[in-house]
Amino acid sequence: MSGYVEGILVILLLNVVFAYAVYWPLAAGQLNLGVAGFVGVGAYLSAYLSNEYGISPYLACIGGGLVTFVFALIIAVPVLRTKGIYLALATFALGQVLQSLFLNLEVVGGAAGYPVIAYIGLTGIAVIAVAVFLVTAFLERTRFGLNMVAVHDDEAVSDLFGVNVRRYQALAFAIGAGFAGIGGGLYGHHFSYIEPQNYSILFSISVVLFVLLGGTQTVLGPLLGAVFFTLLPEVLRGSEEWRYAIFAVFIIVTMILRPQGLVTTFELRAVRRLFGGGGGGGGSGLGRRAHG
């Protein structure tokens, strides 16, 4: 495999992990614009663990993800008191606070950045990215996932049917943050260097953008969004400096023509029918739709 292809694959797999970090809160109806902050928490934590204590980089990444999960669960208590656009603003602010925290933490290099000694290659990233996808796909099929759709669509009714709405919202937020933390750890251990500038609002917005592009109705949407977002600029590479302009036009046109995203429940159902599934016991109705 050429270095170029391998480089693209790594970016693609990392984007898949980040996509599910944004997908989980969206599945509960929350727009998290602070995902870069959680990516940074995971990146710094895991780098510190493997640099200073010499533990396996894989364990460091998973550990960093777990700590980010717990951190987000605590942060969720005040942050999730806000709703809608105010929640987006609160998470945006949280991302900014975390970024300036990294900038001022001298123990991990502050503005100068932090070198990461241990290395994780393509295979390791691929295994973890696939695991993140499978965990999401499984949870979405459980009663937990079913109740999450209910919470997304109608909080009052979910509550009356015994769903602890706040707990579900906090868990969606924290699971997303945990995946963000794992992704951050993988990024640091692959590129061997992290710096606060990586974890800006621009990063959060591009991930949200490609998840919405792919669609949040189904668990496959974020995957497709990540693939498009990573590969399309490469395909357009021939047109040199125009490729980002073309890419931007593509995104705008998609949002106009398909605000619900590229892949929805409808397409999945059609595919299932094609393969003779979908009948018997109402297995269809796969996934969910977002109201935006």
């Binding site: 209910a150 669509d153 109608d154 049917f161 015994g162 109402g282």
Partner: peptide, 20 residues
């Protein structure tokens, strides 16, 4: 007040939640 983005069967499954 059904959950609009679930199938009929899945909406009925929501009804079992109080027993979970």
């Amino acid at each position: 007040r059904l959950v609009p983005h679930l199938s009929v069967l899945e909406n009925v499954l929501i009804g079992q939640t109080p027993r979970i």
